[in-house]
Amino acid sequence: MNFYDFHVHSEFSEGESTIEEIANRAKLLGYKGICFTTYLDDKNKIKKTKEIVSKLSKQIGIEIFIGFEARNMSELDKLIRFRREYDVLLVKGSDLLLNRKAVETKEVDILTHPEYNRRDSGFNHVMAQLATENNVAIEINFREILNSSKNTRANIMHKIKTNVEICKKYKVPVIICSGSVTHWQLKDPKILISMGCLLGLELKEAKKTISEIPENIIKMIKERQDEKWIRPGVKVV
């Protein structure tokens, strides 16, 4: 089974470790591919990241993707405009309007931690139906659980469990990511699967979240980067 982690921050975004350190660690832990997530700040940084990534991918023998995480509406609109130039589009969850916009947009691949910094879970049945229609995956972020403790961790896990239950009912794709900012926070795929089970997923479903669902996203990436592709649902025959 091939495992993927689609939410990793390197030193080019908010992370501390270099791309090389993270890629080597991912290979050691048995991942087939990872996605480096950056923010839309500086276009020079993005060029540099792309250069390093293409070199390292062959050198280390791991698939590396580049993703953008939109933090607000205007960033999301800008990112949709040049959607073909990068691989994965993530939306940073927490703001209710942004969460809603993310699940309404076909170009978005992943809505990251919708419950982040919120008192409620940030995700409901209406959003779930939209996410299924538009094939937007909902993320379970391991770093959120790892970096919290005691009552905060309990609250976060409760909110994630609520979201997982809704996702199961409406057949929304769920994806588990480490959300790591250093290579030490990158976790073994079996650990992520186990955490998925504790959060309410069946073992089969938990395995899917880091193998089959990322693979579907990769299929979409390849389709999108094909010359015949025009926009979601439209391509030259």
Binding site: I145, L146, K187, K190, I191, M195, L198
Partner: peptide, 10 residues
């Protein structure tokens, strides 16, 4: 098993 492995991750 799942509880033990998940705890190791923390």
């Amino acid at each position: 098993v799942q509880e033990v492995i998940a705890s190791l991750g923390l």
